[in-house]
């Protein structure tokens, strides 16, 4: 406890870096997987193709991906961009399926009503399908957020600075307190992400709160 209080500055700095490395990929992933998920609902073969490719990307273990990206992208091993890109790949892999599922789950009669009212394909997607898919997409985003926070800490093995530093450093110095501080900090950060996403989803879907 005292150790944690003595290192508050460092904890906040690393937590900030951790949040950046785990959070930015959530945004990138969301922006990319919404159109991909939409494409997946258009044609069966597109769905199979997209979900297979993103699924295969998801199987690559994180440490391996962190190491494989620099030679592929021409970046330096210590460049945080590798982590951002790797995490974005995982987020896209997770969310593309979720977005596709969420869009397909929109009530058929609702969708047909929208078509009958004369919405264009894109207009309907933006005005009807996407908002109605928000709860499902948000659920997927929460899973991705928690998973990202955990995986980012692995990057400390290759020397990327974030909360995982406490884990590797504590282990190297045989100092359990530091490891526990790292774990708790990661959990708290995951919790913050989770709450923020839930709150955003709530604000964006006022109609889901009327039922009560």
């Amino acid at each position: 406890m005292t150790w944690a209080l003595d290192h508050l500055d460092q904890i906040f700095t690393l937590a900030g870096q951790h949040a950046w490395l785990a959070g930015l990929p959530l945004l990138i992933g969301l922006v990319i997987s919404v159109p991909l998920g939409w494409l997946a609902t258009r044609k069966a073969w597109l769905r199979t193709g997209l979900l297979t490719v993103t699924g295969l990307l998801y199987t690559i273990p994180s440490l391996a991906l962190f190491i494989l990206l620099p030679p592929l992208l021409g970046t330096k091993v210590l460049d945080p961009a590798n982590v951002i890109i790797a995490m974005s790949i995982y987020t896209i892999a997770l969310l593309t399926r979720t977005v596709a599922d969420g869009l397909s789950a929109v009530d058929t009669s609702t969708r047909q009503a929208a078509v009958a009212m004369g919405y264009s394909t894109f207009g309907r997607f933006r005005a009807v399908d996407l908002p109605l898919a928000i709860p499902v997409v948000a659920a997927g985003l929460r899973v991705a957020a928690v998973s990202n926070v955990s995986i980012v800490s692995v990057a400390s093995l290759i020397g990327i600075s974030q909360l995982g530093y406490f884990l590797t450093d504590g282990y190297a110095r045989s100092f359990p307190t530091e490891v526990w501080v790292g774990i708790v900090a990661c959990l708290l950060l995951a919790l913050v992400f989770d709450l923020v996403i839930q709150l955003l989803a709530r604000v964006l879907t006022p109609w889901t709160r009327v039922a009560a």
């Binding site: 699924g55 599922d101 659920a139």
Partner: peptide
């Protein structure tokens, strides 16, 4: 019965839950 929550549950349990073949 196919509510959205159930499909999220599946997809998050295994992002590669579907046929990769």
């Amino acid at each position: 019965g196919g509510d959205a929550a159930a499909s999220v549950k599946n997809s998050t349990d295994a992002p590669l839950g579907a046929d990769p073949a």
